[in-house]
Nucleic acid binder design. Structure first.
Length: 458
DNA sequence: CGTGAGTTTGT
DNA sequence: CAAACTCAC
């Protein structure tokens, strides 16, 4: 019988259900010391952004509360992984570490370089498949989504989620930081109110899933309408690992809506896969030709986009939803991203940065892969001629303008006919800006810019 | 090595 | 229908 404890190192798997790292740590009956280490220095530019820190604060509080019900508590440490882990090992005499497998390049490097004198076991807690598990016939990673997803569907082995433990062995716990001292909550007053539409934590995640499941059958069409809640809104819970993709997958049913929803889970996997095999994904275009793309520098336009003051209603509604609630409807993410990249001709990395700071669901892989997809620099990107027309998108997916009216009150009383193109209205509101770029001009300029890098040599 | 296909569209 | 290109088999 061993009595030395195991360190259970939580990262982006802040849950007790279906947690392979927790199950492994408990397997031989040792005491388990649960820890979370905030290492902003190692994460450097990809340390959690403002909205993510708000979420993290509440998620850590929730996990701590759940652990206290089982007689433990969550040990919080701030500092370099290597230094804090070696301190924890000295304090607890732990003889092994269990941690969820990360896909962020900085975290992979950090874990690979640890030399602590005890075994470090990594467990697949955040993904359905290990990034090396799904390969093409010739053994290379997939770069195109559809064949990747088909391979996933072939390989997927249904298995029930691991239940949360009903009890935990008693453990002698080392000292912990006070969560409030980490000051993860925003000082910005207009934030906390809008962010409270979310309920971080494992219970909040389960409630979201439960609320979504009856609507999953309609997901294939309802997901496109930003004026209603047709999506699962599970993204921040998945990003912090408060629920496992397998738990979500297992809960879904049959039919088109459920299938399309599961496909979205596979997009999340695909993004992680890309990041795993191309660690430069957040910084460099996957298609090398795009390194020479003639981006414009336009801080005024960038700022107008960030604050929802572009004069294009659906773009401004989306950017304001993001700023106020830390979340944006997926359809609108595509529209706002396309507008920044194509109509404003601003580098996708500027958008990636802004989303990283303002999204509660910010995930390095999904964020980078999605921005590259819109930019056309990704492995499996939209064809170059595909430029979203934000007015048409608005008319198609927010036909009555309810979404725009909610987030852009200047347009609340605008006639339906002009809600997505108020510049055509006989009396446009004086307190709402004219478009910072003419849509037809922006589209033509984007296509011209793309021609400069897609022309192949004779 | 040939062939079919490629999330989310615009005009 | 655009439509160069790459990917996967």
């Amino acid at each position: 019988m061993t009595s030395t404890p195991a360190l259970l190192w939580f990262r982006r798997d802040l849950r007790l259900h279906d947690n392979a790292a927790l199950a492994a740590a408990l397997a031989d009956g040792r005491p388990v010391v649960p820890v979370f280490i905030l290492d902003d220095e190692t994460a450097a530019e990809w340390a959690p952004g403002g909205a993510s820190r708000w979420w993290l604060h509440h998620s850590l509080a929730s996990l701590d509360a759940d652990l206290r019900k089982l007689g433990l508590r969550l040990i919080l440490r701030r500092g370099h992984y290597a230094k804090e882990l070696s301190r924890l090992l000295a304090e607890t005499k732990a003889s092994e570490i269990h941690v969820g497998l990360p896909t962020e390049p900085w975290a992979r490097r950090a874990i690979d370089s640890l030399k602590l004198g005890v075994p470090i076991h990594t467990h697949r807690t955040a993904l359905l498949f290990h990034p090396d598990a799904i390969k093409t016939g010739s053994g290379t990673p997939y770069g195109v989504f559809t064949p990747y997803s088909r391979a996933c569907l072939r390989e997927y082995q249904p298995h029930p989620p691991i239940p949360a433990p009903k009890s935990l062995p008693a453990a002698t716990l080392p000292p912990s930081d006070e969560l409030n001292d980490w000051k993860l909550l925003p000082t910005h007053p207009d934030w906390s109110a809008g962010l409270s539409v979310h309920t971080p934590g494992e219970k909040g995640a389960a409630a979201r899933l439960k609320a979504f499941l009856p609507k999953a059958a309609a997901y294939d069409t309802a997901r496109n309408l930003p004026g209603q809640i047709g999506t699962s809104m599970l993204s921040p819970h998945l990003a912090w690992g408060e629920i496992s993709p397998n738990t979500v997958w297992q809960a879904t049913g049959e039919g088109r809506g459920n299938e399309v929803f599961r496909t979205e889970i596979l997009w999340r996997e695909f993004s992680s896969n890309l990041l795993w095999h191309f660690p430069a994904l957040p910084e460099a275009p996957l298609k090398p030709a795009y390194a020479a793309f003639p981006w414009r520098t336009d801080t005024k336009a960038l700022h107008a986009w960030q604050r929802g003051q572009t004069g294009v209603p659906i773009v401004d509604a989306g950017m304001r939803q993001l700023w106020q609630t830390g979340w944006m409807h997926n359809r609108v993410r595509m529209i706002t991203a396309s507008f920044l990249i194509k109509h404003l001709l601003i580098d996708w990395r500027e958008g990636e940065r802004w989303f990283w700071d303002t999204l509660v669901d910010a995930d390095l892989a999904a964020n980078a892969a999605s921005w590259q997809w819109v930019a056309g620099s990704g492995a499996d990107a939209a064809p170059f001629f595909r430029v979203f027309n934000p007015s048409l998108q608005g008319e198609k997916f927010d036909a009555d303008g309810a979404y725009v009216r909610h987030y852009v009150p200047e347009l609340e009383t605008m006639a339906e006919k002009y809600i997505h193109s108020p510049w055509n209205a006989p009396n446009p509101p004086k307190n709402y800006p004219s478009p910072i770029v003419d849509l037809a001009f922006g589209r033509a300029r984007a296509l011209d810019a793309l021609k400069t890098i897609t022309k192949s040599a004779p």
